[in-house]
Amino acid sequence: MAITSQNLPSNASFVNYVRHHRLLDPSTGQPLELVEKSIRKLAFIGSQEARFHRNPGMLAGSTHFRHPACLGVIETPFESLIFTEFVRGKPPRMQDIARPLALAIAELESRSHEYLAAQTQSKQPLLWSMDFFRPWFLLRPRFNFARCLPGLQQLGRDDARFAGLAERFSNFVPQLRRMAHQAQQSPRCVSHMDYLRKNLFIDKGQLHLIDWSEMKIGRVGFDGGAYLGSLFRRSEMAMFLTAQTEFTESYREALPEHFNAGQALDNLRYVFLLTALFHCLRPETLEEYRAQERLALLRDKYEHLLSLH
């Protein structure tokens, strides 16, 4: 059997490697392409992504997203090996897919909520460990923007446009605690949490979603916040505001009636703030905007975030 392999880029936590394999199926003579991902285990515990793929019925029947088929999961004491179908397609312009992404996320949340609700009591400890509101997730730097405030204080001493902003941003800490408590009481669903251009492809009009390495048992609305947070980080303000309006209107319309739309949008704002505050306040971002002489844009983004308090 002839096999050719190529390493693919990956910067996800605990990923050893990602490889694209191309081989000939000996029974049919047809080429077969697949992706092999190796994920390190921590304390011999299997990865989130491996657990997701061991529940193939979770998103069965999805129409708005196409999810690459999982061909197999192999667990060793030190790694999870995941084999999935290789996806070809064109990465989209993220601001251009606001509406189809809203429809796909609403469907994903509805189907996964139904799946989780139907699980037996024996699975509850596993689902508990995968829940977003566990310390091993919430203590990650990207969910803790407050540790970045000293850098903003220094920027305020160097540039009067940023003076006093660190103190204003610190007011988000109690607000986010309240939002987290409210979100924790809302319907659970699977959340992908990593809506980046590298994880989405369009092929013949079909939207493909890959890479579940950041997945959590989240809450309805979380994935919309993750998408908008990522878009806010990378876009000019006018472009972001247009996409935000299109996404939220389409998402609200697409939500099934058994979800509370107001609650889902509150959850969306919660995750949006978590991600946008960290990425806009971290030292690397301050240095990037300073080096590119784009601090005026960064100040505009700060004003938008502060308007949400």
Rank of each mutant, 00 (worst) to 15 (best):
F278I: 00
L305D: 01
R88I: 08
R234N: 08
E49G: 01
Q182E: 07
T285W: 01
P187W: 02
L24D: 13
F240W: 12
F143W: 15
P56E: 08
H304G: 00
A254W: 09
S250K: 02
Q6R: 15
I82M: 05
L8W: 00
H20N: 10
A104W: 09
D211M: 10
S80D: 15
D96C: 03
R233E: 12
S38I: 07
T63D: 02
L176C: 09
Q121N: 04
L155K: 04
C280V: 00
N7L: 15
M239Q: 15
H181E: 11
L155S: 05
S213P: 00
N11A: 12
L273G: 03
R140D: 11
L24S: 04
M215D: 03
P31D: 01
A261V: 11
H20S: 05
R178E: 09
A276D: 07
K198L: 07
R157I: 04
S170T: 00
L196G: 15
S13F: 13
F272I: 01
L306G: 00
V173E: 13
Y251E: 05
E79H: 05
V271I: 14
H53K: 08
L34P: 01
D300Q: 15
F247G: 07
Y270W: 15
P150H: 09
L228A: 01
R269M: 12
I39F: 07
A291G: 01
L101D: 07
Q124G: 04
E284G: 14
M1N: 06
Y115S: 01
L126H: 06
F272D: 04
S13I: 09
T275N: 13
S230K: 11
Y289K: 13
L23Y: 13
R252S: 08
L103I: 06
W128G: 04
S186W: 05
K37T: 03
E85K: 04
A43V: 03
P31Q: 02
C148M: 08
L255D: 04
R161L: 05
E114M: 12
R157C: 10
P56M: 11
V190E: 00
Q206K: 13
L200Y: 02
L165H: 01
I97K: 09
H64K: 11
E284D: 13
P56R: 09
D131W: 07
V35H: 07
F137Y: 15
H21N: 10
L176V: 06
F145R: 00
T275V: 07
E75I: 00
H181Y: 09
L138C: 10
D131T: 08
D194L: 08
G205Y: 13
Q124T: 08
R51L: 06
Q121Y: 06
E284N: 12
F247M: 09
R269A: 06
S170I: 03
S250V: 06
L274Q: 10
